[in-house]
Design a protein around this nucleic acid. Structure first.
Lengths: 331, 331
DNA sequence: TTGTATGCGTTATCAA
DNA sequence: TTGATAACGCATACAA
């Protein structure tokens, strides 16, 4: 069903039908009603490819995420999807599983896929070849969760958040605090959180060099469990994300420790599920959906203006702290 | 950068450049190398819209899901994304938040978006107006998680799974078992699970009429907590999904009950996170990623053949049972 | 207010 | 093995 058939059936020109859909105000009311009626009965839908080809815009936003298996990104994508939809955009998501070559491939694919802009979470903006490629393509893009002066970013101040968190734990009496981190090399967020940890500990005169890097999900629980069985053990674990915190609680259980009575555990991300757990996760909360929404908003504005998103429009959204139950005063 | 410019720069015709990309074997090796080289230096990428317009296929699969905030669907989408990608398809997901009007709108949008096929999870295939519309559009589609004789479906046998589960609980000594269900009206899965519960209980000579329908996430914990404070209380809760199971465990905690010592709780879905919880979730596992993968596979085959997916190709994948720790013999 | 005609970038048909 | 060309469905400049 094409615009031509609708035009023929309605007894008007293709141009008129086109105008009915794109600039309804420029066509006579009765003609418009007639055309609309005809389009309706013929179940006419404008062909997106033809429209994109002609207008040179697809109304599609490409999205590059590490994974959907971490609820942080699922929540964010949900925000992206809603914001995009209400701005009249569709989304085309690709996951990279934290693999650098996938990042570059994803950007490549999206470039070829004719997207109008891209929203991405990369491993490390400073070294990302995907970003380099994207820049030369001159396509509007925004980074989410990443933070870098040369790129437009929507994130929270991870470093400060963890710094504050450490102070909070210290105020509860904790002195032996260990950081449980994801792969530092694979994520600028992990690095920022680690810096916040070290700085926070140092500011309190505590030892900020104790951390465990957990490279693989599969062995995370074992690794943490092993750490907890060494003596002396920490009285608090600062985990660089909520999934690690959940696994730390599991590890504590396997090591025969109660949370929070024997050991405090904190997370980072504020995934919704954490609120339903027992003990409820004590964690730094990020507005995940809002991060997505805001990113889309910046992107849409830039695409409308036909220009790149300025790094100057980067924003740090407010983080929060959910007290939860996985964290208690040192007894 | 268009095919025409590449052709000019390479000193060949547009047709040859096109062939280099689409049927490389039909063009002379040195010509091909030359064109490829030129395309490379010009950073040429074929325009997806033009290609779609010409070939009448977009190589995009539309995906309609209730939400990404339930890890079940995030895991499934992950499987879909990977399968689609390796088959050369992109995906265009839309979430409906379990709202019927959104389902119809989503189908409408995807139809207009020129997708080659659709993979969807609807509330209820029997009554879905979205599906009716989709059928008249004559576009290949597959349902996931849903189950209905008139449609091609990829799912597990929910009814049997819950039936078996009830028997398992009874074998542990449980007699007073209550079903915690999501909105029955909003989901055929919930209905199937409820039927499995009733049938399973009845087969054992137990009272299969005890169930609590939890319509809203916001009040789920309170509602379940209230149930647990009535006397006599059930010794086991069969939850119709993992998120409800997690909230039930929370509710038990708030009611002063220990899981599984005071009350057993089982889930349904097998979300990965359940394995890291303490107590580890006892649950019926579905191969969520595999459901997505299989759906894509059926769809891709049908799209290649240019025909609809037959309801006869519906498949019930095997479910499993994760013993976990949230479930124990009646003491 | 409406119609005519062109071109967006590609693939496919046909001829060379 | 290659080239010329038409057509996919649409939006828009321009003419009426």
């Amino acid at each position: 069903m094409s615009i031509r058939e609708v035009a023929e059936q309605a007894g008007v020109s293709m141009a008129t039908v086109s105008r009915v859909f794109n600039r309804p105000d420029t066509v006579n009311a009765v003609t418009r009603a007639h055309v609309l009626q005809m389009a309706q009965t013929l179940a006419y839908l404008p062909n997106a490819s033809a429209r994109s080809l002609r207008t040179q815009r697809s109304r599609v936003i490409g999205v590059v995420l590490p994974t959907l298996l971490n609820p942080v990104f699922a929540e964010c994508l949900d925000g992206i999807a809603k914001a995009a939809s209400s701005a009249g955009y569709a989304i085309l998501p690709i996951t990279t599983d934290y693999r650098l070559e996938s990042e570059e491939l994803a950007v490549q694919q999206l470039l070829a896929g004719n997207v109008d802009g891209m929203l991405l979470v990369v491993s490390n903006p400073a070294t990302s070849s995907a970003l380099a490629r994207l820049r030369t393509a001159n396509l509007p893009y925004v980074l989410a969760y990443n933070q870098h002066p040369d790129h437009p970013c929507v994130s929270v101040d991870s470093e400060r958040a963890v710094h504050e968190l450490v102070a909070r734990l210290a105020a509860l009496g904790h002195r032996r605090i260990t950081l449980i981190s994801g792969q530092l090399a694979a994520s600028d967020r992990a690095q920022q959180r680690q810096r916040g940890f070290s700085a926070g500990m140092q500011a309190l005169g505590l030892d900020g060099t104790q951390w465990l890097e957990v490279p693989f999900v599969e062995t995370a629980v074992q690794d943490i469990c092993a750490l907890l069985q060494r003596s002396p053990r920490p009285s608090a674990l600062v985990c660089s994300n909520d999934l690690l915190a959940i696994r730390s609680i599991r590890a504590a259980h396997l090591a025969g420790l109660r949370v929070p009575q024997d050991i405090s555990v904190t997370g980072f991300d504020g995934i919704a599920l954490g609120e339903d757990l027992t003990p409820m996760l004590s964690t730094i909360t990020q507005p995940n959906a809002e991060i997505g929404r805001h990113g889309v908003q910046l992107l849409v504005a830039a695409m409308a203006a036909g220009e790149a998103v300025s790094p100057a429009s980067s924003v740090l959204l407010a983080h929060g702290f959910r007290a939860g139950e996985s964290c208690a005063p040192l007894s």
